[in-house]
């Protein structure tokens, strides 16, 4: 009987000691990570286009942190979904087509002759990338345009075009070589010939 008590006491003591060590370590070596919303926000493309149904990327990041689906960001596309899935430890799902499809990156250009200087696009631009004043011609700061499309709708004279970003010799690069021969031929047809 005595050994039983002894065992219980020893185990209890051990539990207390290790518990204390673990507890101390948890406090002493605490790693301060970014808040999850910031981490999510960092993975979003920051287009601020609102296609996800939120007024910008940060609000969507907040919504994801609160449990919204991660597949509502068309500009980020699959890459972003995959990164988000990795971060949050959930399964990567296909892009929700309801919120738009993945498209090539574009930049807004104002046909300056036609601009009447109404400033409506300036107010719509989520990243302040349009320059101009009332009754003055407006122009887009190309380097800062995210291609979000939000300026198209308010323009009363439809003088804004979304043009794809052009490839220059500086931005051009090689594509991945064609696959190894291993996959260059179509798989054989394994289907057995029918006998009927």
């Amino acid at each position: 009987m005595q050994t039983l008590y002894l065992a219980i006491i020893i185990l209890a003591l051990l539990a207390i000691v290790f518990g204390a060590i673990l507890g101390f370590a948890a406090i002493r070596f605490k790693v301060d990570g970014d808040p999850i919303v910031d981490q999510i926000d960092n993975l979003l493309p920051q287009t601020q286009c609102g296609q996800c149904g939120h007024p910008g990327c940060k609000p969507y990041a907040q919504a994801i942190a609160d449990g919204e689906a991660i597949n509502r960001c068309p500009p980020g596309g699959e890459t972003t979904i995959k990164a988000l899935a990795d971060l949050l430890g959930v399964e990567a799902i296909a892009l929700d087509a309801e919120h738009g499809t993945e498209a090539i990156r574009t930049i807004a250009y104002i046909r300056e002759d036609e601009c009447i200087g109404c400033t409506k696009c300036i107010q719509a631009c989520p990243v302040d990338a349009i320059l101009g004043a009332a009754k003055q011609m407006h122009t887009v700061i190309v380097a800062e345009c995210t291609g979000c499309d939000l300026c198209l709708e308010p323009c009363p004279v439809d003088c804004i075009d979304m043009l794809p970003v052009e490839t220059t010799p500086l931005s051009w690069h090689w594509q991945q070589p064609k696959q190894l021969i291993a996959t260059s031929t179509a798989p054989h047809n394994h289907g057995a010939p029918s006998h009927d």
Binding site: I181, S184, T185, P187, H188, H190
Partner: peptide, 11 residues
């Protein structure tokens, strides 16, 4: 190789 649908001779 045949079953995997790969070209046989090169391999």
């Amino acid at each position: 190789l045949y079953l995997r649908g790969r070209p046989i001779m090169p391999y």
